[in-house]
Design a binder for these strands. Structure first.
Lengths: 241, 241
DNA sequence: GGCCGTTTCAAACGGCCGTTTGACACGACG
DNA sequence: CGTCGTGTCAAACGGCCGTTTGAAACGGCC
C-alpha cells in the first residue's frame, strides 16, 4: 500500500502534478457538494463521482471525509483572507459600514464566492467539530469589525446594545443566504439574489444607521423619498459616491 | 397483518386509547429529534427508542418517516395557530409591531415552544418537500402581517422596500434561533437566549422603527438615550459622548 | 530493460439506515 | 369459548454509507 499522506502541505510530487490535480478536483467537487447538501448528506461517492476519481482517493489525499471537509473550509479561509476591503479610518464611518456590508453580502451571494460562504454559514446552523474554527476565524473577526464601526457611530451605546446592533446586521445578511429556498418560494426564484447585492447592502446599511439614529450618515440617498413630493423613477441615477 | 392507517384523522380505538398514547409519544419524541438534528439525521430507531416503542410503529401509525415528519409539522401549525396576538388596529402601529416581534421571538426561543419553531425554521435552510407548506402556512402570513405594519408606518414606501424592511425583521429574529450554536461560542452559552426575549424584541422593534425613520414610535423607552433631555435611570447612568 | 515509490482502481467490509415481515398479545363481540 | 380486528414486537431485508484492502498502472531513475 502506498504511503498515506492524509494531510495537506506537501509538494514535489514525482508523478508530475497528477496527484495535485486529483486533489484539486476533489476539493472543488467537495466544495460544491458540501455547499449544496451539507457535511452529513453529501456522500463521498457523490463527491468522487463528480471529481472523476475513485472513492479511495478521499482517504488517500485527506485521511477521511472530515479531513476533506476541513480542507474545504481551510481553502475558503485562505481565499477570503484578502477579500474584505481594508478599513480606512479616514473615511466616514457610515460609508465604511456600507462597504463592509456590501463585501459580506457579496461573499454570501455572488456566484463565484458563495460556495465557501455556504459551507461556512451552514456550520452556524448545523455544527460540526469545525464550528469553533469557523467562529474564530470568520465569524468573530467580522463581528468585531462591524461592532467597532457601530461603536464609532454611537460611542454612548452600552456594549450589550452594540452587540445587538452588530448581530442585527449579520443576521439580516446571513438570512438572505440561509433562507434562499424559502425566499425562492416567497418572492420568486430570482428575487433578492446576487444581482441585488448593491440594493440589499444599501438597505441593510441604511437600516442599521437609522436604527442607530444616524440618518444623517446614510451612505447613499435612500431609494425612496420620505417626505418629499416627487415620485422617484424606478432606476434613479444617484450612483454612490 | 393489521390494517395500516398511515394517516391521521381516525378515532374510536377499540383498544382503549393505547394506540393514541403510542402515537403521542412518537410525535413528542420525533419533535425533539427533528428539532435537534433535522429530518435527514434523526433516525427512526432513535425516535422509537426515545418513545419506548418498536420501529415498526412509525410505518404503522404514520406510513413512513416522512409522514411522521409531516405530522410533527402539522401539530406545530395547530399549536401555533392561536398563538400570535390578534392585531388590534386601534393601538399604535409601533406597539403592534413590537408585540408581534416579541411573540415571534418567543415562539422561536421560549423553552416550551421552540421545538416546533426549530423544525419549521430548519425547513428554510434544509428544505424537504414540506417547505412549500411551511412557507404558505407559517412564513407568508407572518411576512404579510409585518409588511402591513411596515406600510402602515410608512405608506410612502415602495413595495420592494417594504419587503426589505420586513425581511430584515424576520432575518434578525430567525438568526437568534438558527445561529444558536455559533452564538454560544461567540457570547457564551446562555447569552441571548429565551430569557432575553423582551430585550431582543425591544431592540429589533426599535431598530426597524429607526430604520423607517419613526424614532418617535419606539414602543418602549430605549435602554440608551441618544438625543434626549432626561437621563435614564435604567442601569448604569447612560454615558454621554 | 529492471526497479521503486507514488497514485489510482475495483471490490469488498462492517455498520447504520428506512422499511417490511410474520407472529403474538389483547380486548371486543358473537 | 372461538374469532376477529387492533396494536406491538423481534427479526430480517435491501440499500447506501465511510472506509479499507490488495493489486494494478504510472513515471522517474538506475
Amino acid at each position: 500500500m502506498g504511503g498515506r499522506r492524509g494531510d495537506q502541505g506537501d509538494q514535489a510530487a514525482p508523478g508530475g502534478g497528477r496527484a495535485a490535480a486529483t486533489r484539486a478536483r476533489l476539493l472543488a467537487a467537495a466544495t460544491r457538494a458540501f455547499a449544496a447538501r451539507g457535511f452529513a448528506r453529501a456522500s463521498v461517492r457523490e463527491v468522487c463521482g463528480a471529481a472523476g476519481c475513485n472513492v479511495a482517493a478521499v482517504s488517500y489525499h485527506f485521511g477521511d471525509k472530515a479531513g476533506l471537509y476541513r480542507a474545504v473550509l481551510l481553502a475558503g479561509f485562505e481565499r477570503d483572507a484578502a477579500l474584505p476591503p481594508p478599513d480606512d479610518p479616514s473615511r466616514p464611518a457610515g460609508e465604511r459600514l456600507h462597504d463592509l456590508v456590501a463585501a459580506f453580502l457579496g461573499r454570501l451571494l455572488a456566484p463565484e464566492r458563495h460556495l465557501h460562504a455556504r459551507v461556512m454559514t451552514r456550520e452556524l446552523v448545523e455544527p460540526t467539530p469545525a464550528l469553533r474554527e469557523v467562529v474564530e476565524v470568520a465569524f468573530r473577526p467580522l463581528h468585531g469589525r462591524i461592532r467597532a464601526l457601530v461603536r464609532e457611530l454611537r460611542p454612548d451605546l452600552r456594549p450589550a446594545d452594540a452587540d445587538l446592533h452588530t448581530l442585527g446586521v449579520i443576521g439580516q445578511c446571513v438570512f438572505y443566504r440561509h433562507a434562499r429556498p424559502a425566499l425562492d418560494l416567497l418572492h420568486g426564484p430570482d428575487a433578492l439574489g446576487a444581482a441585488d447585492v448593491p440594493r440589499l447592502a444599501r438597505h441593510v446599511a441604511a437600516q442599521v444607521l437609522g436604527g442607530l439614529g444616524r440618518h444623517d450618515l446614510l451612505p447613499l440617498p435612500p431609494p425612496q423619498g420620505h417626505s418629499d413630493d416627487h415620485p422617484r423613477p424606478r432606476r434613479a441615477a444617484a450612483r454612490r459616491r
